[in-house]
Computed example of a mutant assay.
Amino acid sequence: MSVRTNRPRRRLLTSMAAVFAAGAFVVGCTSNEPEEEEAPAAETGGGDDAGAGSGNDEPGETVVIGFSGPEADHGWLAAVNDSAIAEAESYEDVELRTAEGTNDANLQISQIETFINEGVDAIVLLPTDGAQLTEVAIRAMEAGIPVVNVDREFSSPFAARATILGDNHGMGISAGTYACQLIEDNDIQDPVIAEIAGIDALPLTQDRSAGFAEALEACGQTVDNRVAAEFTVESGEEQAANLLQAAPQIDIIWNHDDDQGVGVKQAFDNAGRDEFFFIGGAGSSNAMQWIQDGEMEATILYPPTQAADGIRLARLIAQNKGMSDLVQVEVPRRIVLNAPVVNADNVEDYLHLGFDS
């Protein structure tokens, strides 16, 4: 049996998370970090004349960019790596040197040291562990090689020229705000809300859960049942089955991760449970297909394009360009991407961002 969205819905703006942007915080920020202005990622950058309409996509001086990311053992990570490579290939003035994906921090450190020794023009780095890669990133910066930090933040502001992040706290805010809207639209009395988190020890999971709880609190609700999985299909199925056994009636379930959501959905089908609104997280192709088929209410996007955006920023920085949609003449130091709600109203706009689980 499939989970179905059989209650009426009201169209919701996908940019609801923007309401909370002013208060959102970013994973991994350190208290001694200087405050930086956040700016939206531009579709195209800006040229030497920092005005809209400048020709940043026009070929410029060829730059060599080193890219290092974790092992693609998760659908989202594979999409991150693939999007970075594809973005680099779209520019004739970018030579990309890609290190083999690894979950070994020491190996990744040696990869960055190789980039430093080769004298690349910029480095785009999604670290296995931000703290462990901080020192080598600082060495790259001291060698005059700008580093673009992606997704997992370094522990020093001196380790990166620019940082581009997804918004984990914002994901929770979006999911909770959407849940509140569903409760209001469907006049659900005393709703039972469940949460299937990822790995609880990770700051990203803690931030997603914190945002979800904060948004629910705004409409007088709390999480009634919660389990934590491990971002895998197997753990998703196991923990979702445990959740269903513990809660005979549920109105809304938010699952943090669409990769583990494959197992979560299987557990729903195995139990024959379809009485709830099912909200996912990250934006996999599976989730978007389920939304189109009426088997899932929504998913909260965690952009898999972060490293691709990192490639664009590295190119601009290495070519001494700015961003065309900003008056500021230089690339910002920090960019936090939005975490929009993707539902039946707008799923076609986001299909191209879906990744295979």
Rank of each mutant, 00 (worst) to 15 (best):
N6D: 12
R11G: 05
L12S: 10
L12E: 08
S15Y: 11
S15L: 12
M16Y: 11
V19A: 10
F20G: 02
F20V: 06
A21H: 09
G23P: 04
V26R: 11
C29S: 14
S31D: 15
S31I: 13
N32W: 09
N32L: 11
E35H: 09
E37Y: 11
E37W: 08
A41I: 12
A41H: 08
T44S: 14
G47S: 11
D48L: 13
A50L: 08
A50C: 14
S54R: 01
N56L: 08
E58K: 12
E58F: 13
P59R: 04
V63S: 07
G66C: 06
S68A: 15
P70W: 06
D73V: 12
H74A: 06
G75F: 03
W76M: 07
N81L: 10
A84R: 02
I85M: 05
A86G: 02
E89F: 04
E89Y: 02
T98P: 05
A99S: 15
G101R: 06
N103D: 11
I112A: 14
T114I: 07
F115Q: 03
I116S: 04
E118C: 10
A122W: 01
I123Q: 07
P127Q: 04
P127A: 15
A131Y: 02
Q132W: 06
E135P: 10
I138P: 00
A140I: 10
A140E: 03
A140R: 04
A140F: 01
A143F: 08
A143H: 08
G144V: 07
G144R: 09
V148M: 12
I164C: 08
L165F: 09
D167Q: 07
G170P: 02
Q181S: 13
E184Q: 14
D185Q: 14
N186D: 12
D187G: 10
D190M: 08
I193M: 01
E195D: 10
I199D: 13
L202I: 10
T205E: 14
Q206I: 11
D207N: 13
R208A: 04
S209H: 13
F212D: 00
A215H: 00
E217V: 05
A218G: 11
G220L: 04
G220S: 02
V223A: 12
D224Y: 08
E230K: 13
E230L: 14
F231N: 02
G236H: 06
G236Y: 01
E238R: 15
L243T: 04
Q245F: 12
A246W: 08
A247P: 07
N255D: 11
D257A: 05
G261Y: 08
G261R: 05
V264N: 03
Q266T: 11
A267L: 05
A267F: 09
D269T: 09
G272V: 06
R273I: 12
F276L: 12
F278K: 00
I279H: 00
G281Y: 03
G283E: 05
S285F: 01
M288F: 13
I291N: 00
Q292G: 13
E295W: 08
A298E: 00
T299H: 02
Y302R: 05
P304A: 12
I311N: 03
L313E: 04
A314K: 05
I317V: 15
G322H: 00
S324T: 10
S324K: 06
D325A: 14
E330R: 14
I335Y: 10
L337C: 09
L337R: 11
N338A: 15
V341Q: 00
N343F: 02
A344G: 12
V347G: 01
E348Q: 15
E348K: 07
E348F: 07
D349A: 15
L353P: 02
